[in-house]
């Protein structure tokens, strides 16, 4: 099962957010999106999900009827609900009778004493974990994560990374993750796409998941950032 993106373009009055991006995502593999702010990572994700209407091009999934999990950047959650209620609601929307909301909240590492607290009292990290639990509801075959480590402390990052690795290996979930944390991307992903100015500039296969690859990737990223700054 693949997710085919073909010549996806989104133009705004101010310029192109993304321009002619084509890629092929495979289920059971993790793909990273790396780039500076404004490179078009989030727009690409939103276009693939249908949240932003592309100006041209298409994104096709041959399992389009099956649910997918999406963790937005800075997720906005209903303030008056508790995490337990929200995740139960998500499971109901996705017609899942197998999973329990408590299992999902445990899986993302949200402490049990906060499960029934209204979300308005949550810290950013706790909100992030709750939103991740929502994305994981109904065991989706694809996970699209926009800055999943945002707001998490060191232990939280490790926990979420392990969780994603487990999903990848044990359930064969396809993951598309967008992040500024190069180390996290190298640890998790099988390949990383370097984006700049709304285009995919480079494809970086991750083989050893080593610090050497992190250094190489950071070097490439710096080159693209410098050339972008030069153009500006």
């Amino acid at each position: 099962m693949n997710w085919q993106v073909d010549q996806l373009t989104k133009k705004y009055k101010e310029g192109d957010a993304i321009a002619g991006i084509s890629l092929n995502l495979e289920k059971g593999k993790a793909t990273g999106l790396l780039g500076a702010n404004g490179a078009g990572k989030s727009t690409l994700i939103k276009c693939m999900l249908g949240l932003v209407i592309p100006t041209s091009g298409s994104a096709y999934r041959n399992d389009a009827e099956i649910s997918l999990g999406y963790l937005p950047e800075n997720p906005s959650l209903p303030e008056t609900l508790s995490a337990l209620h929200l995740v139960e609601h998500m499971l109901r929307i996705r017609c899942s009778r197998i999973e329990s909301s408590k299992d999902l909240l445990s899986e993302v590492g949200l402490k049990e004493r906060y499960w029934k607290t209204p979300l308005r009292a949550y810290s950013k990290g706790m909100r992030q974990r709750t939103a991740l639990a929502c994305a994981l509801a109904a065991d989706p075959p694809w996970l699209i994560l926009d800055e999943p480590m945002s707001g998490l402390d060191v232990l939280g990052r490790k926990h979420v990374l392990s969780l994603l690795e487990k999903r990848l290996k044990e359930k064969g979930t396809g993951i598309l993750v967008c992040s500024h944390a190069v180390t996290d991307l190298v640890r998790l992903c099988d390949s990383i796409l370097l984006m700049a100015s709304g285009k995919v500039k480079d494809f970086f296969p991750v083989v050893e998941h080593s610090m050497l690859e992190v250094a190489q990737l950071e070097e490439k990223l710096a080159i693209y950032n410098e050339s972008k700054a030069g153009v500006q």
Partner: peptide
């Protein structure tokens, strides 16, 4: 307004919804 302008809709609006 919460759904549309604050982006709460993103949590709910993923396939199959």
């Amino acid at each position: 307004a919460n759904d549309v302008s604050k982006g709460m809709i993103h949590i709910f609006l993923t396939p199959p919804s």
